[in-house]
Amino acid sequence: MKQRARIRLVVIYIAAAIVLAGTVGPFLWLVSSSFQYERQLLNRPPQWLPNPIVLDSYREIFEGAVMGEDSGVPYQSRIFLRSFANSFFVAGSVAVIAVMAGAYAAYPLARLRFRGRQVLLFAILASRLIPALSLAIPIVLVAKRIGMSDKIVSLVFINLSFILPYVIWLLQSYFKTIPMELEDAGRIDGCSRLQVVHKIILPLSLPGLTSAAILAFLLTWGEFLFALLLSESPSSYTSTVVVSLFATDVDVSFVSIITAGVLSVIPPICFALIFQRYIISGLLSGSLKG
């Protein structure tokens, strides 16, 4: 029996090693590449670990952002940090606003009885079935007409609508887990509905609100289609757009392209690993990334 347990563990760890290599391997290679000289990247066979550790491409991005055209750095590298800040602004704003508006919308869906509740819940979910591409066409047309194209505020607004249904769904299922007695006690003590939400529901839902905010941030950070279609200049490019500008340009050195890729996944990966519990619980109770 002991023998069998040992064999089982060996099989498990071989499988786990394969999964581990497949999961983080490709990303680690990207990180390793970003710390090498361009000419080392062109080695055959490839050099697995950077030796020495080269920070040139990272310095380029910072110098380019500060010195502009004088730095002699490629265009994409110069505008990258700006786009990084834009991504933070858009994703951060969406996370905050989506959780605030979402929480108020989720409360009645979880707790109140009113006509059309089922319809509202269904409509909110169904809105996510419409492909973004078909909505993109009129949205771009209108944004250009009313002068809202090329503004990051527009990106906040558009991303909100895709994130909100998701946040509402997640929060209403979380609110349902809060014991009704607590709310009733508050009502008997003379709290209004709004006070019940503020003093009982929201404080008790902190874990749920946190997962919703983090997921909203991550989903918005990775959004590409609207970021691409609604931006025309570095003032509104997000990091995913600049990454695509890098990746589709053959004249930029590999190491610059790779470095931009690494930098733009640092925030989401750090977030994902730090808040993994919140994310996993949020993913399991809510919908999906897409």
Binding site: P26, F224, A260
Partner: peptide, 22 residues
Amino acid sequence: LRALLLVPWAIPSVVNALLWKW
């Protein structure tokens, strides 16, 4: 291992495309 699964999940699709292009 379960936590590390979130690494590919967190990578934006555009960066993923760049990674595979490389």
